[in-house]
Write a protein that binds this DNA or RNA. Structure first.
Length: 484
DNA sequence: TTTTGAGTTGTTCGA
DNA sequence: GTCGAACAACTCAAA
């Protein structure tokens, strides 16, 4: 037996407030932080192209921080995490393996297998909570079954009290032997082959320091007005913490703690309500993980089985492609899809609008939209993505009633009144006056001429008629209830 | 056990 | 232009 512990890092890519890491440092002389690249393995962190870009830069940042602490991040790659861990255990003579828990079905299955095997091998294995304020199994209804409605779930969480766990900060890490082998980050080939993601760096700073900066910016500049501005996509009214939270660069309780601390010194009008609204969004993140844990089938099937019979369109290749490329001819939708392509992110309000168009106006299965988001979002998160898409499609927990079909033109006029967001992402529309920028198909000839805009040439004609497709969707949903 | 009221994010129509 | 009602049906938590 030696006194060496391995800390298997996954979506907890931070040094501060990291329970597994803090435990290892507190109880062992030698600590080996490792990231394992097993792209073929179910539950792997090698997923969408945008996420992989983020992961690359996050690992880069983390390995620099670990170096500053006097240690070294070990990278290993292989077909599966277990064999990589076993090899590392053999190489390092480690006696303990620690990690922070994940809650996706594939990760739970993998991790529990690994735990069983390593315990059999005679190692001490412990997992910790680094990602959630409430473990999914902690919160149940009075009858012991899981919540399926957000508000009572969140009320129960708040009643219990949002946690503020004390986790030791890392001041210094013991050195890792230079003989211990590590892959080079570039060998993991996380960056896309095309230079498509190059622009991401203008928008994002992956890593622990970037997460802290994003939170500070939000608290200083946006939080007090959050309740009013969070729906305006032209404004940086949201925190944009989602990718940082996804990769565990910051813990949700750290976010909550800092918001509360800032609030106690904040006398601005509406600050309390805004902070509450914001923290409630952290609650939605908890709820998404909670639902995925209790209802793992929701990853690709509707939460409620009666929706399995819903009659989606089958010939979807052409409209799906137009949607993905931001060429639907519906300005706010195209703006959102282009923002996604260029930055790896989309404003939440716009996510709802583009999703509603796909599921309801185009009648394309929500799974198609979820897959595209998984591939293109830097904050792609199976739990949040699943909840969001099922909510939009009307087949999930606390779902939108089926008659609630967004009108993308009305939404744009309401939340992008000056057309600033549309003009930024769809510059070919920029010359149109505000009145028609969200619905160029209604612009009279005189306006078209004056602005020099040629519908169908400069910009696609709308892919669907909003009114007709709305009625068609309502009809389909009606069929669903009359059939059963 | 039964009842009651509520449920993230809307749209349209007609007065 | 503003406002309220209608748009379905169902689940679910709690009284």
């Amino acid at each position: 037996m030696t006194d060496t512990a391995i800390v298997w890092l996954r979506r907890d890519l931070r040094l501060q407030a990291n329970p597994a890491l803090a435990h290892a440092i507190a109880h062992h002389q030698r600590v080996i932080p490792v990231y394992i690249h097993a792209p073929e393995e179910p539950g792997s962190m090698f997923t969408g192209a945008a996420s992989n870009w983020w992961l690359h830069h996050c690992l880069l940042s983390l390995s620099q921080s670990i170096r500053e602490m006097g240690s070294r991040l070990i990278l290993r790659q292989g077909t599966d995490s277990l064999s990589c861990l076993q090899q590392l255990i053999a190489d390092s003579k480690a006696s303990a393996v620690y990690w922070n828990r994940l809650y996706e079905p594939a990760c739970i299955a993998r991790d529990s297998d690994i735990k069983t095997q390593l315990v059999d091998d005679g190692l001490e294995v412990r997992s910790f909570n680094s990602a959630l304020m409430f473990e999914p199994w902690e919160m149940t209804k009075q009858d012991g079954s899981p919540y399926r409605v957000f508000t009572p779930f969140w009320k129960a969480c708040v009643a219990r009290g949002l946690p503020s766990p004390a986790v030791d900060d890392v001041e210094q890490m013991p050195a890792v032997s230079t003989r211990l082998g590590s892959a080079k980050l570039d060998e993991l080939a996380l960056l896309p082959e095309l230079d498509w993601a190059d622009g991401f760096a203008d928008h994002w700073q992956p890593g622990e320091a970037g997460a802290e900066e994003a939170l500070q910016r939000f608290i200083d500049e946006a939080m007090a007005e959050y309740a009013d501005t969070r729906n305006l996509p032209a404004i940086r009214g949201t925190s944009a913490l989602s990718p940082h939270l996804h990769f565990g660069e910051i813990a949700p309780w750290q976010v909550n703690n800092q918001v509360e601390a800032a609030l106690s010194a904040d006398t601005r009008q509406g600050a309390v309500k805004s902070a509450e609204t914001f923290v409630r969004e952290l609650g939605w993140r908890e709820f998404a993980n909670y639902l995925l844990y209790h209802f793992p089938h929701t990853v690709d099937e509707p939460m409620y089985p009666r929706f399995a019979k819903f009659r989606w369109e089958t010939k979807t290749a052409v409209p799906l492609r137009a949607w993905q490329q931001g060429r639907t001819g519906i300005p706010i939708v195209d703006a959102g899809m282009r923002e996604l392509w260029h930055t790896g992110w989309m404003h939440n309000r716009v996510r709802m609008i583009v999703a509603s168009l796909l599921c309801k106006n185009l009648l394309i299965p929500w799974q198609e939209g979820a897959a595209w988001f998984e591939d293109t979002l830097v904050d792609a998160d199976l739990a949040s993505n699943t909840l969001g898409w099922q909510w939009t499609a009307g087949c999930g927990a606390d779902a939108a009633p089926f008659f609630r079909i967004f009108n993308p033109a009305t939404q744009a006029e309401k939340f992008d009144a000056g057309g600033e967001y549309i003009r930024h992402w769809v510059p070919e529309l920029a010359s149109l006056p505000d009145k028609y920028i969200a619905r160029p198909w209604e612009a009279p000839a005189s306006v078209l001429e004056e602005s020099g805009f040629n519908p169908g040439e400069d910009y696609p004609l709308p892919l669907v008629d909003l009114k007709q497709s709305r009625e068609r969707a309502l009809e389909r949903y009606k069929q669903l209830s009359s059939d059963s």
